[in-house]
Design a protein around this nucleic acid. Structure first.
Length: 312
DNA sequence: CATTCGTGAAGACGAAT
DNA sequence: ATTCGATTTCACGAATG
């Protein structure tokens, strides 16, 4: 282990890198985690596996300075078993005598570290809970590992930017995962999230918007086609009909009929008509059930789809 | 009888003011 | 902050097969 010892506060260490392939934002080193992340959209560009936590236990600021590779460990095991302390703000010793000179400098440094230590710790606890939620929901929704990772990156950024106060951890965690899923082109509808999250759909959506705005996440509206495969297999639809459904959606997109409409609704409608055109029987009720889109919306959409379809 | 279709009321949202 | 327009959903009844 001959790695150079760095002691830097990683909040300040965000070094500029190349441009993000996704949105042209700049790539920065993400804090405390071995990841390089786009500043604008949260895309994880690469992850190295170096553990930047401390190599030995440290019992006071001096030792920590000497031994730590970087600020705080992420393990939460060493500090704060309800035992965290605060360095006082007065320049006096225990007897009320003023402290001067070199010792005063030392105290100042101690306070700086103490403050970093405590606030970092509060965040880590918050983060830990949120990541647990993200993991749980991602499993329930069958989302891949990469999505969980970017969701956690998004969440960390939200935490960094102080976007949490006034909002529930669970809501923010759900919103982060929702954003990550869309970003990774494996979207799940808000209804599906409602099924696995404790917060209701409107709050998820509100929080997501807020998140997207504050973090400048450049996420396009979800592509209806991305829902087709998943819903189709739930509905037991032939591959022929699936392809037809995609064609219909493409035509619709080409005509611009889809703008402003819910992508899920479009996909549902396509999955209603397509099987019909291939002589399979699917009822509106079944599609509605599988997609969580109302029958009314399916009716309205599928007629529009047929109007603009080239391929009938 | 099951399925489909159309309608009005109500809720939520973005955009405009 | 409020208003307006569009979209979606719900509940219901009518039409279709």
């Amino acid at each position: 282990m001959t790695r150079t010892i760095e002691r830097t506060d990683d909040r300040e260490r965000a070094t500029e890198g190349p441009a993000c392939p996704e949105c042209d934002g700049s790539i920065v080193e993400a804090e405390s985690r071995a990841e390089r992340v786009c500043e604008d959209c949260g895309l994880v560009v690469s992850a190295d596996e170096i553990d930047r936590g401390p190599e030995w236990r440290a019992f006071d600021a001096e030792e920590r300075d000497a031994k730590s590779r970087v600020g705080a460990p992420t393990t939460e095991l060493l500090h704060d078993r309800g035992l965290s302390t605060t360095v006082g703000w007065k320049n006096e010793d225990g007897y009320g005598q003023p402290i001067t000179g070199e010792r005063r400098e030392t105290l100042r440094r101690l306070r700086t570290w103490d403050e970093r230590f405590r606030t970092r710790n509060a965040r880590e606890r918050n983060l830990k809970q949120a990541l647990g939620e993200i993991d749980r929901m991602a499993s329930a929704l069958g989302l891949p590992e990469t999505v969980r990772e970017s969701a956690s990156v998004v969440y960390r950024r939200a935490l960094e930017e102080d976007l949490l106060p006034g909002r529930s951890i669970e809501g923010m965690a759900t919103a982060a995962l929702y954003a990550a899923a869309r970003q990774a082109s494996v979207p799940r509808s808000l209804d599906e999230f409602e099924g696995v999250s404790r917060v209701d759909r409107t709050e998820v959506q509100r929080t997501y918007r807020y998140l997207a705005r504050e973090l400048g996440l450049a996420i396009e509206p979800a592509d209806p086609e991305e829902y087709v495969e998943r819903f189709a297999s739930e509905l037991d639809v032939s591959s022929e009909a699936r392809m037809l459904a995609r064609d219909l959606l493409r035509d619709a997109k080409a005509e611009g009929v889809h703008s402003g409409k819910s992508p899920v609704g479009m996909a549902a409608a396509a999955l209603y008509v397509a099987p019909r055109l291939t002589n399979e029987s699917v009822t509106q009720a079944e599609v509605s059930d599988a997609t969580e889109v109302s029958e009314v919306t399916i009716r309205n959409r599928y007629q529009e789809l047929l109007e603009v379809a080239d391929s009938v």
